[in-house]
Amino acid sequence: MSTLQKTRKYYKWSWDVSLGGDYDTWGCSTYFMEIDSNLYARRQIEIYENGNILFYDKSHSCDEYGMLCDKKIDDKNIEEFEISEAEFEKIWQTKTPINK
């Protein structure tokens, strides 16, 4: 395993606020993020209550629904939400996003 792979971390948390506007009916969401060694998101998954799924990464960083988080993540504030790489990859490989 490369050094870069060892420094990636994965997180999952629920967001109890809807997107609002045209997407308010989507409901609340669950976020999954892959964070690199510099504490920036590399990949992001958003799964909404109505079943809609959004994927973001460096090759598709934004669209009409939203965008890949561009802020540095303070991992001390989210360490309790850490998940395994396998859990993240399972979602990334098996779910079909509406925005790709």
Rank of each mutant, 00 (worst) to 15 (best):
T25R: 12
Y10H: 03
N38G: 10
N50Q: 07
S18D: 15
N52F: 08
N52I: 06
N38S: 15
G51E: 08
T3E: 14
S61H: 06
Y11R: 02
Y10D: 03
E34Y: 03
L39T: 13
W13V: 02
K6C: 07
G51I: 06
G27D: 02
E49Q: 14
R8S: 05
Q44K: 08
G51A: 05
L19V: 04
L39D: 15
E64A: 08
S61F: 09
A41V: 13
S59P: 04
T3N: 15
Q44D: 08
S2E: 08
S29L: 09
M33K: 15
G51Q: 07
E46R: 09
D63C: 01
K9E: 15
E34W: 02
E46K: 09
V17I: 14
N50F: 03
S29H: 05
N52T: 09
S29V: 01
L39V: 09
N50H: 06
R43V: 01
N52C: 09
N50D: 14
D57C: 10
D63K: 02
D63G: 00
Q5D: 15
L19F: 03
L4Q: 10
S29P: 01
K12S: 12
N50E: 08
R42H: 11
S14E: 12
G66R: 00
G27V: 01
R8F: 13
E46L: 09
G20S: 01
Y40E: 04
F55M: 05
Y65P: 04
D24Q: 09
D63A: 01
D36P: 05
H60Q: 08
W15M: 11
T3G: 11
I35M: 02
V17K: 13
D22F: 07
Q44C: 04
T25L: 12
S37W: 13
S14R: 11
N50P: 05
K9M: 10
T30N: 06
Y10N: 00
C28A: 11
K9W: 04
R8C: 12
K12A: 07
Y10M: 01
R8A: 04
R42A: 14
Y10I: 00
E64P: 04
N52S: 13
K58G: 06
Q5S: 13
N50S: 11
A41P: 06
H60W: 05
Y65Q: 04
T25M: 12
W15C: 12
D24E: 13
S61V: 00
T3P: 08
I47T: 08
W26Y: 11
S18V: 04
G20L: 01
Y11S: 00
L19H: 03
K12D: 05
Y56L: 03
F55K: 10
D22V: 07
T7M: 14
I35G: 01
N52A: 09
Y31F: 15
R43H: 02
Q5V: 08
I53K: 07
K9F: 06
D63S: 00
L4P: 01
E34N: 01
W15L: 11
Y31A: 14
N52H: 13
Y10G: 00
L68K: 09
I53A: 01
W13I: 00
Y23I: 03
I35A: 00
H60Y: 06
Y56S: 02
Y11L: 01
L68A: 02
Q44N: 06
Y65R: 04
F55H: 10
G66T: 00
L54Y: 03
G21T: 00
Q5T: 11
Y40G: 03
S61A: 09
G21S: 07
K58S: 12
S2G: 06
S14H: 10
D63R: 00
L4R: 11
S61M: 07
Y10L: 01
K58D: 12
M33T: 15
